[in-house]
Structures are given as structure tokens and as C-alpha cells.
Design a binder for these strands. Structure first.
Lengths: 190, 190
DNA sequence: GTAGTTTTGTGATGTAGGTCACAATATCAG
DNA sequence: CTGATATTGTGACCTACATCACAAAACTAC
């Protein structure tokens, strides 16, 4: 399935767009390819775009001064990623987005997203829905952090991203769970 | 300042609505008063509305089987609260929303919100913006949970809700921070 | 006011998970 | 295939925070 069809199916699941509307919508996206390990958004830099994943896997994360990494999200195909705080507020990135595996994405600029939202009501509706899902997911994860221990969060992660287990280094799983890699290593066989 | 003026100022800060548009928007809200401790949304029940706080303070929280409480949000004046997962998906509430203090709110039904979003493009734009802020805030709190200890989170909370300290029992502060009340008590004077 | 309930402080003790160190594997480039 | 690099497993020890228990305040309702 090609890029256009993947995006179209993703959008149509939420908001019906006419073919003309979708063509117009799609014309604002730019395809990009990245190699494994490439950085798409770097902390301290301006953030102009968000990214819709077609193939591969991205991660967005925060790195502390001591070099510790905390993963906010893995972005699998049909997921979106960016530093949304920076993108919306026009501030510099505080997080990094890079490639866990080689990836193909569609890039949309923040300015074009706002323009599309203004011009096409259904597009704004789509983005409202999408952000909403993200909000609810973030709250659930927050709750999980508050009342589940590392092992429970690990099991939730496998539910949420079943494909992930074989694809990404365990270090990254640990960074998503918010535990040390040593602790994660001890979780799966006592 | 009356209810209408408070809401109007809040909305105008994000999205300019004409007076006619705002009157129409406002006509879908119902004022409600609650006493301290009253429950607005209860787990297991259907959720039909969201709530805009005019005066007082609400909290939304999750309670575990063991009776532990974890606070997702304190809702101060001009904040919104509901069980958004339930409201959007039409499922039963998994969280509780109740009153930390006596409160006055404006109530909007989920159905009316969707109707307004369909009818008035600027309203949809407002709600997209609002959810976005919530999403970014939830991600920041998530990060804070991952790499800050209890004392640091406590200091962040005082930044975010300076008024809160004198208004709500410390137990609730602890439930927001995700620590036991004993630990919180030991934090502020080592 | 006084009695009852709720909220807070403080000590003693237990535990999940962090940190450091080093060995055992994978993975990758040439 | 071979050395170099990155990733994992495992032990020893440490620390932040939970839990339990009980005392001291602080609100509430008569």
C-alpha cells in the first residue's frame, strides 16, 4: 500500500473526507526517508513539522543532564510524532525524535496544519480527535505510573505494542517503563 | 464577574467568536452548584457532560480496589473537568470527579459539544486547542514522574497551583504527587 | 464550649528498584 | 572471519519511599 492510501485509510477511519478534500490535504505532506538512528528533531532546535509514520519505528524521548533517557512514545506505522509542545508554542525542542529502525514518514508543517484546519473544517475535526486520543492515552499512562509497579507496566507495554518486543533493544523498553535496564532484565524470569 | 463573562473571556483568549456565535455557544451550557464533597461523576456510571469551573475546586481521581486514590487533576476556575475517556467513547466512568470545595460550574453535554463543533468551526478550533494543552501538560507530568523524585514533584506542584496549598488537605496533595501522605509530611522540613 | 471525626506528624521497619562493577553475548564493519 | 562496539545478564550494596502504629492537632457538629 502506498503512502497516500495509508494516510487516507487512517484519516477516513475518523473523518470522512471527499476525494478532492483528501487530495488537497495530502498535497501538503512531504515524504521523507530516514536511516536507523537518524535524528529528526533535536533538543534546542526549532520544530517546524510533525511526522506521520508509514514504515518503521520512531521514538520521542527526553534526555536529562546526567544523560538518562526517558521515552515518551514509540511511533509505529500510522502513528504521529513530533515535539508538540515546541510545535504548538513555537518554542525550541526539549525532546528528541529519532529512528529506532529505518523509517518512512510523511512530514506536515505546523503552519500547513493550521492552514488546513482553517480551510477544511473536517481536517480540524480530525486533528481534534487525534489529539484527544493522545490526551486520554497520556492520562492512562500517568495513572499506570502512579499505581503499577515495573512488572505491571511491562506487561501493559507488551499489550500496547506487541510488535515492539522483537524490534527494539531492551534498554529502550526500560527507558519507556521508567526503570533501569538492570531492573527490567530481572523482571522477566524470577 | 458573571458566568457568561468568565467563559467568554476564557474562550476569547484562544479563539475570537462573534457575540452572536458566543451567545449561541453559551446557550448550551447549564449552571450548576455543588457542595463541598459532592460527587459529580462516579465510576461505573455513564458520563454525559464536561464541566467548566467558575468558582471553587474540583478533583478528578482514580481509586484502586485497595482504596488508594490517585489524583489526575485539580480543576480550578476556568479549567475543565470530566472523565474524557468515558465521555468520548461513550463508556462508563472509570474515574471520579468531585468537589474539593463548594463549586459553581457550567455544564456542557458531550452531544452538544459535538453539535457545536460541527456547526461552528471556531468552536471546534477552540476545543482542539484546549485538548492540545491538556495533552502537552499530561506529557510533561509524565516526564516529571519518570525523572523527578517526590520533593521535586512537590515543588512543581506548588508552581503549577500556588493557590492550592492553603485550600486542600495535604492528603490530596500526596495523592496528586503519587506518594503516601507520610512521605509528603516528611518532605517539607528536613 | 465538648465530643467526635478527620487530618497531620513521627518513629520503626520493610522492600522495590537504583547504582556500580564486571562478565557474557550480540551486532556490525571491514 | 575477526576485531570492535553495543547490548544484555547478574551479583553486591544502597536509598527513596511504603507501610504500620500511634500520638497530636485541627475541624465539625451539636
Amino acid at each position: 500500500m502506498n503512502a497516500k492510501a495509508i494516510l487516507q485509510e487512517h484519516v477516513a477511519r475518523i473523518t470522512p473526507l471527499s476525494n478532492e478534500q483528501f487530495d488537497y490535504f495530502f498535497s501538503h505532506f512531504t515524504p521523507q526517508s530516514y536511516k536507523k538512528g537518524e535524528t529528526i528533531i533535536a533538543p534546542g532546535k526549532a520544530v517546524g513539522h510533525e511526522y506521520f509514520v508509514l514504515h518503521g519505528c520512531l521514538k520521542s524521548f527526553y534526555r536529562t543532564d546526567q544523560g538518562k533517557m526517558f521515552i515518551l512514545q514509540f511511533a509505529m506505522p500510522t502513528w504521529w510524532a513530533s515535539d508538540y509542545e515546541a510545535l504548538y508554542n513555537g518554542t525550541r525542542a526539549t525532546t528528541t525524535v529519532d529512528c529506532v529502525t529505518a523509517a518512512e514518514v510523511l512530514r506536515l508543517s505546523g503552519a500547513d496544519r493550521e492552514k488546513l484546519c482553517r480551510e477544511v473544517h473536517a481536517v480540524e475535526s480530525f486533528f481534534r480527535w487525534r489529539t484527544n486520543r493522545g490526551y486520554v492515552a497520556a492520562q492512562k499512562r500517568l495513572l499506570s505510573f502512579m499505581h503499577h509497579d515495573a512488572r505491571q507496566r511491562y506487561e501493559e507495554l507488551l499489550q500496547l505494542y506487541p510488535q515492539l518486543y522483537n524490534v527494539v533493544p531492551k534498554q529502550l523498553i526500560a527507558a519507556y517503563l521508567g526503570v533501569s535496564r538492570e531492573t527490567l532484565s530481572r523482571l522477566y524470569q524470577p
